[in-house]
């Protein structure tokens, strides 16, 4: 984009003019802005306790500064590499298998001509999204028991019954699959919306050129929703390392810490359970830095290769 040469008003001046002209729009955006300030920016001040031996009753003013003590403790912790690896691998598998799943579902649904069947399938796949995570994990835990559903399926196909959530090798599969089960329907909505926006003339043209269903999908449908896919992918990558602790602490037990324990569950145990506020904040802060780096990198790569990007 080329800027016009010549006289350019200062930013504050332009803002003033714009404020006067569009005050109602600014008023509309105000609550959102306040929300971010109150709940996203102000708490960041609390990140300072990563550099303190923090005691709540003493407050931040009176707690002792300890510099990078908490960080060096975490980096030299025997769990550091394991936590990093588990967090990364779980997110990576989540992305690898979890990201394409709603796209595939949307593409499949798009081809369904029977409206009733389509609606039914959509409802069934959305449903788990509305269940609380606690309920979902409770179900998964029960299904994984020796007499549980998963084991019945395994036995049906000739396997033997074992307690699945006690085997570190199965944990990632259970984690990723249950995640897909819960979110696939919900995630497909945005793609279905994007699909409905594709010009039907393109399909007609493709048909005239002799493209079958498969070719139509490759050359018309997918390019049509690429911008949405890329944007969502970048956002997912930004969250790659920020896995919530909720699902993990609901599913894991010490016998599978080896693959299940991730940074946020470790933060949960040391912060909320053992009152090591400073230490756990330091770990959280480190995690955020990693995330931030990832999202910037992903955006950069995407801008260079697909010309789609967040900014």
């Amino acid at each position: 984009m080329h800027r016009k040469k010549g006289y350019q008003e200062s930013f504050s001046k332009r803002l003033k003019t714009d404020l006067r002209r569009n005050w109602s729009l600014y008023l509309l955006v105000l609550p959102v802005l306040l929300f971010y300030i109150a709940f996203k920016y102000k708490p960041m001040y609390g990140a300072l306790i990563a550099f303190m031996d923090y005691t709540p009753t003493k407050g931040m003013a009176n707690s002792e500064w300890v510099g990078l003590k908490h960080f060096s403790r975490f980096f030299s912790s025997p769990y550091f590499w394991r936590l990093l690896k588990n967090t990364f691998l779980l997110s990576f598998y989540n992305l690898l298998f979890g990201f394409p799943a709603p796209i595939i579902l949307a593409l499949l649904l798009n081809e369904v001509k029977n409206a009733k069947f389509k609606k039914f399938t959509q409802t069934v796949t959305y449903l788990p999204h509305f269940l609380s995570l606690v309920v979902i994990c409770g179900m998964v835990t029960d299904f994984s028991l020796i007499n549980g559903l998963f084991n019945s399926v395994i036995e049906f196909f000739g396997g033997t019954r074992t307690p699945l959530l006690q085997n570190p090798d199965y944990y990632r599969t259970i984690y990723v699959l249950s995640g897909i089960w819960k979110e696939v329907g919900w995630g497909s909505i945005i793609y279905l919306a994007a699909l409905s926006g594709i010009d039907t003339q393109l399909y007609e043209a493709a048909k005239i050129d002799g493209a079958g269903k498969w070719k139509q999908m490759i050359h018309v449908t997918l390019p049509g929703i690429t911008p949405q896919i890329v944007i969502l992918l970048i956002m997912k990558i930004g969250n790659l390392m920020s896995m919530g602790y909720e699902k993990t602490i609901l599913l894991y037990n010490p016998s599978i810490y080896e693959t299940a324990d991730i940074i946020s569950s470790y933060v949960y145990r040391s912060g909320l359970m053992n009152q090591e506020w400073g230490y756990s904040t330091a770990i959280g802060l480190f995690n955020s830095l990693v995330n931030c780096t990832l999202v910037v990198a992903a955006n950069y790569i995407s801008r260079k290769t697909t010309e789609n990007s967040l900014w």
Binding site: Y36, P43, M44, P56, N62, V267, C292, W311
Partner: peptide, 27 residues
């Protein structure tokens, strides 16, 4: 937008806000 993105990822893990004023009054 870079700033916002940074904040969005950071904010999740820094929930414990400062309460020094309240704590002081409490004391």
């Amino acid at each position: 937008s870079l700033f916002t993105a940074t904040m969005m990822v950071t904010s999740a893990l820094t929930g414990c806000g400062s309460k020094e004023e309240e704590t002081q009054t409490a004391q």
